[in-house]
């Protein structure tokens, strides 16, 4: 079953006819040729296919493409300004946070979503922010350091930072 759909990816408007059983990951990679978004597990366990949809980090392998109708998608290809890397990308390169690089787009998109939501995360908040992302080559220390470095260099939005997740759900009286 095919349906026509429209959506915006990295600022470009697309009208495509997609099989309703295609995932957003498949359409990004195979229909639009945006192969920067990676497939690792294809079942939402690894975070490799993370993209940002209407400002929120989502797993494109568990999203039906058809449900991205009318949405705005940001993928790894949409971050840099030409050859000028986004501060998160720059920090990943400089901190040695990239080895095989296969999980990198997913980590960078998770980091982007995290810093959009919380420009000044603590170390624990960063770790929680990339909890869905699996890396096997780099470990996580240099990735966390890269996100810390990016947070420092990024222009800070004037918006008051949101309270991030607390480490422990302190019980309470209401």
């Amino acid at each position: 079953m095919k349906q026509e759909m429209e959506f915006t990816v990295n600022g470009e408007h697309y009208t495509v006819r997609v099989d309703t059983r295609r995932t957003l990951l498949e359409v990004l990679r195979e229909t639009l040729g945006l192969t920067g978004t990676k497939e690792m597990c294809n079942k939402g366990d690894c975070g490799g296919c993370t993209v940002i949809m209407d400002g929120k980090p989502i797993l494109s392998c568990l999203t039906l493409a058809i449900e991205a109708q009318g949405k705005e998608i940001l993928t790894i290809e949409g971050l840099a300004d030409g050859y000028t890397l986004h501060p998160i990308q720059q920090a990943f390169v400089e901190s040695g946070a990239i080895q095989c690089g296969y999980c990198t787009p997913g980590f960078i998109m998770s980091a982007k979503a995290l810093l959009d939501r919380n420009p000044h995360p603590t170390e624990d908040q960063i770790k929680e922010g990339i909890a869905n992302n699996i890396c096997r080559c780099t470990g996580y220390v240099q990735i966390v350091e890269a996100i810390q470095a990016a947070a420092r260099t990024m222009k800070r939005p004037v918006k008051r930072p949101m309270k991030g997740p607390s480490r422990k759900p302190g019980g309470g009286k209401q």
């Binding site: 975070g47 980090p57 989502i58 797993l59 999203t63 909890a131 869905n132 607390s166 019980g171």
Partner: peptide, 22 residues
């Protein structure tokens, strides 16, 4: 968060940012 702190806390502890967003 104000009225049902237990629910807010459990939701924050469920899954990952991606899973919680979806």
């Amino acid at each position: 968060r104000r009225q049902c702190g237990l629910l807010a806390a459990a939701c924050q502890m469920l899954g990952t940012p991606q899973i919680r967003s979806m």
